[in-house]
Nucleic acid binder design. Structure first.
Lengths: 224, 224
DNA sequence: ATCGGTCTGTAACAGTGTGCAAGTAACACT
DNA sequence: AGTGTTACTTGCACACTGTTACAGACCGAT
């Protein structure tokens, strides 16, 4: 037989202490996912390797495979788990315009808050899964603003792309990028024939939060 | 002594045929970069491994190291080389608004055209380097439109983020993402309380080109 | 003919995800 | 109490990654 894949839990066992004699690790698929999340949040997405996780769990690597199947499944599970955990934040504002903005900002803020897992999801190409619950809320607000069908979809996709862009810029690990290849550094070394003040401004780290707000508002207004 | 790092070219050699006796491969740093670009464009960024490139060049892996230093340097060189090669496309339009749009679209189109290298740059966190020449053009047009200093920088960064977002969505390799985790699939399986037509529209692959144009125009207008 | 810088190859280290076969412990049933 | 089945765990191995220490081979200059 292969793996359980579905949560087995055939036998009820206490997961805290080792159950029977001591051979069984007494660990659950859920335990692995939990530890994986812990690991990712503490040391970033790259720290998540099967061997590392196994060590952390005091278990052989293959045990993880038995429980979760593959690294890919593990990541998916992490994201699924995380997307459920995301606290449904209250939408602020009365006017549709403000409520949409609020819903969109939730994606941004939550993604930054759990930056490690967001990066992980992005790497795995599963950000859709992670952001889905937020997008449902967003879609609801869009419909409340009078947008339905293709119009609502267009607006949502437009917002999605914009948010994604800002997230990529905000979450990329600057510390892992050589100094001379960072955006500001590239502009600082620029010899382009532009106004001095423009060059200086471009060589300065932008305030992404402010920029996000300005840009997103324009994108949203474009659809209302 | 370590590596040359700087293009040595101490002795002038014909790089086509093996020069001396036959021991020397007669390969240049430039040859490695060229082959690497070829490889990346043909089989995607993940196909670029040092061993693979070495095989492709009929050379031992260490030879590559001697010439280019490290994988990271190789990637940087690829990007630098590519960013120079990028044909300076003519800006279309007479009105500043149109010319800015044209400049921004160049980034988009060129990135898609060389999607593999764009992805590579993105993975390595060096997209700044790659897009810099385009951004110079963009900045010039922004100044021509009357934006200078922080205002120009703000506009450029706003546009940069938007373009980045669309690029990420456009370039992520859908074929490597399991069907059930793709955006459209997630929405297709949705049970959210939304209008049927909205759900259907969200389950359909969006026309990113069109969406890009609409969104970017709004972002640009926001700064004029 | 020897010296030294320029290149190239062999072998190895440490790390990754993953598959296979074997083993042990716990349970169910006779 | 003994036996068989299932649930889990493990060690080993494979194929891959980037990178490096070391040992040479080649070549031009002295």
């Amino acid at each position: 037989m292969a793996q359980p894949a579905k949560r087995a839990e055939t036998a009820k066992r206490v997961k805290g202490a080792t159950p029977g004699t001591g051979r069984r690790a007494g660990l659950d698929r859920a335990d692995m996912v939990a530890k994986a999340i812990e690991l990712v949040e503490a040391e970033g997405p790259d720290a998540l390797s099967m061997r590392r996780l196994a060590t952390e769990l005091n278990v052989a690597t293959t045990t993880i495979y038995w429980h979760v199947g593959s690294r890919d499944e593990l990541v998916t599970e992490i994201i699924r788990h995380q997307s459920e955990r995301l606290a449904a934040r209250p939408i602020k504002g009365k006017k549709p315009r403000d409520r949409i903005m609020s819903a969109a900002t939730h994606i941004w803020e939550s993604s930054i808050e759990h930056r490690a897992i967001t990066s992980l999801a992005h790497q795995a190409g599963s950000s859709s899964l992670l952001q889905y619950p937020f997008e449902v809320v967003l879609a609801t607000e869009l419909e409340a603003a009078g947008l339905v069908g293709p119009e609502a979809a267009l607006a949502l996709q437009s917002i999605r792309a914009t948010v994604t862009g800002f997230l990529v810029l905000a979450l990329r690990d600057e510390s892992s990028i050589p100094r001379d290849r960072r955006t500001t550094a590239v502009w600082a070394a620029s010899e382009a024939e532009l106004d001095r003040s423009t060059l200086d401004a471009l060589a300065t780290e932008p305030d992404l939060n402010k920029l996000f707000e300005i840009t997103l508002q324009a994108v949203i207004d474009n659809h209302l």
